[in-house]
């Protein structure tokens, strides 16, 4: 009986090694031990046979080479997009050291301007209000939690398109004078998206895109009027949600918005800072 048990335990160990055995990824000693076991165990031999045969099916399939799509379509897309980056990339490619030095100089200049409160232009940021954003987020526990849960990373809004699989709609200003304040790249285990914070005085509007857990969805072109703190619609490449009107109402804001074409999701949250 105990011999049976120990044999079964050995078979279980062997079973885990069959896959690397098929691929020739076992160490010499392991391989020899496994081969010795296979000589004496019909069940493991059968298992090896089945695994090899199932894998063989895929290898055969691999030999059927499908014709890839023609290059022309990629070239046309690239020609249509008229990439201006190719010019500066060519220039940057000339000498990495020069490019790095220029980058460092630009960064130093930018830091200097930020410290002096001269950048970004057109915002109300002043030297005395460096931690303003942190203070505001502390007053929005829901948003703070969301940002923490989704490992939010502050980014330049212009970079969002580069960093995401879809093009988020990043408007510099929403109706009612709400101006773009901060852009975050957010992601969890299986999705990525953006979180845009707009501000008008003490009021904040947060537009979170690509929040797959939310149960609601809008149809393309729907007009939506909401006073709650959570809404969702679906969005495609290009403009996703168009916010038409924003009015304060109690602790919330009323949004009138129009959903764009349907693809990925968009989650809109309206919050009033208190």
């Amino acid at each position: 009986m105990s011999q049976d048990n120990s044999h079964r335990a050995l078979c279980m160990q062997v079973e885990r090694k069959l896959s690397p055995f098929i691929d020739g990824e076992l160490k010499e000693l392991e391989r020899l031990g496994l081969e010795r076991h296979l000589e004496s165990c019909a069940a493991c031999r059968r298992e090896l046979e089945l695994l090899t045969e199932a894998s063989g099916l895929l290898r055969e399939e691999g030999r059927c080479v499908p014709e890839p799509p023609p290059w022309e379509a990629v070239r046309r897309t690239l020609a249509a997009s008229g990439k201006p980056r190719s010019i500066w990339k060519k220039w940057l490619g000339f000498d990495r050291a020069i490019a790095a030095s220029i980058g460092l100089l630009a960064l130093a200049g930018l830091l200097f301007a930020v410290v002096r409160g001269e950048w970004p232009p057109g915002t109300e940021r002043t030297a005395g209000r460096v931690d303003e954003r942190r203070v505001q987020l502390a007053g929005l526990p829901g948003l703070k939690g969301f940002l923490a849960d989704h490992r939010a990373q502050e980014v330049d809004a212009a970079d969002l398109d580069e960093r995401l699989d879809f093009s988020p709609h990043v408007a510099e200003e929403l109706p009612g004078g709400f101006r773009l304040h901060t852009a975050y790249l957010v992601h969890d285990r299986c999705s990525a998206g953006s979180c845009l914070i707009y501000r008008r005085g003490d009021e904040l509007v947060t537009v979170v895109q690509h929040a797959p857990s939310h149960p609601m969805s809008w149809r393309s072109g729907d007009l939506v009027d909401c006073t709650v703190a959570g809404l969702a619609c679906r969005k495609a490449r290009g403009p996703g949600i168009e916010i038409l009107q924003i009015e304060p109402e109690g602790r919330n804001l009323t949004l009138v918005a129009r959903a764009g074409a349907i693809d990925s999701e968009l989650f809109v949250r309206a919050l009033l800072r208190r």
């Binding site: 990629v74 070239r75 690239l78 990439k83 980056r85 190719s86 010019i87 990339k89 060519k90 490619g93």
Partner: peptide, 8 residues
């Protein structure tokens, strides 16, 4: 990397 389409 230099942005030339023929490389792609």
């Amino acid at each position: 990397q230099g942005g030339e389409i023929d490389g792609l």
